[in-house]
């Protein structure tokens, strides 16, 4: 069974004026059907306003579809009895690290999720220790979140979700507010979750570099899924990505330009190493 499955998911934001009359309808997600298998690393890519964050909020039952259905681990998100099961199955990490940390001490924040689930005290301590070690923040367990860097705070948020032992973690642009070092810390932690802990990861981002390690990539634009495939398949279509206002990683761009000038380089180069190998073969 798929961990996440959507069928003809449509979501409309309805704007109302002061007298509650409908002013206009914005379709943020338009007829999206996708399915995610257990243990996959999925990246959802899109420009601002492409509907990717709205889609993410459906997986955690924060938003409900206007039309269509979303299933998380077989549970329909519209079923009110399953709400808390769904939220414990699919954890969510948000963009702004400051606005999702509740505790005044790191370990207390990580414990917030398990506390809500009614986990016994002794087990909470075990979960806190384990999750902080996974994201490499165990030595900061007694610190105040205010003293940490953005990347560290975001890793705490990930640990907080991890402590709930979810089957799937949705990360909604977790690196958008971070500097390059913080971004690398967070992405490394996310890859660890997927590769070592075998948790399904759905990463929402507009940074191309971050999707290189994904198993599958969905590219969204104007509420639709425009492209779907492995990172290599996606990156080999440089022209199409550009038409969706997305830029490819520098090395892919360089390879693409060299190829256009007539060098025999394969499509979809993802890393510097691959490009050097390809260039060596050219000589």
């Amino acid at each position: 069974m798929e961990i996440v499955k959507t069928e003809n998911l449509t979501f409309e934001y309805i704007r109302r004026d002061e007298e509650d009359n409908v002013e206009g309808i914005t379709t943020a997600v338009d007829d999206v059907s996708l399915s995610v298998e257990h243990g996959e690393f999925i990246a959802i890519l899109g420009h601002n306003g492409s509907g990717k964050s709205t889609l993410a909020k459906h997986i955690n039952a924060i938003l409900y579809p206007t039309e269509g259905t979303v299933w998380v681990d077989g549970n329909d998100t519209k079923d009110p009895d399953k709400l808390w099961t769904i939220r414990n199955t699919a954890g969510m990490v948000f963009q702004n690290p400051d606005n999702q940390i509740i505790g005044q001490v790191v370990e207390e924040d990580v414990a917030f999720g398990p506390e809500n689930m009614g986990v016994p005290t002794k087990e909470i301590w075990e979960r806190v220790e384990e999750s902080l070690k996974v994201v490499g923040m165990y030595e900061y367990r007694k610190s105040s979140p205010n003293r940490l860097s953005g990347g560290q705070k975001q890793r705490i948020s990930i640990a907080g979700v991890l402590a709930m032992h979810p089957k799937c973690i949705v990360l909604d642009e977790p690196t958008a507010m971070l500097d390059p070092i913080g971004r690398k810390e967070v992405i490394d932690a996310v890859r660890g979750l997927n590769e070592v802990e075998k948790i399904t990861v759905i990463l929402i981002t507009h940074y191309m570099e971050e999707i290189v390690h994904a198993d599958r990539v969905f590219v969204m634009d104007k509420g639709h899924i425009e492209m779907e495939g492995t990172p290599r398949e996606i990156f080999s279509q440089v022209e199409k990505l550009k038409s969706l206002r997305l830029s490819v990683p520098q090395v892919t761009e360089l390879a693409y330009k060299l190829k256009k000038r007539g060098l025999p380089i394969p499509d979809g180069i993802l890393t510097t190493d691959e490009l050097t190998e390809a260039l060596k073969r050219c000589r």
Partner: peptide, 18 residues
């Protein structure tokens, strides 16, 4: 939103770290 996503539903049935 973040609190709800982490399963917060008031004081009922909550346990404590400390």
């Amino acid at each position: 939103m973040a609190m709800e996503a982490r399963g917060y539903r008031g004081g009922k049935g909550r346990t404590k770290l400390k």
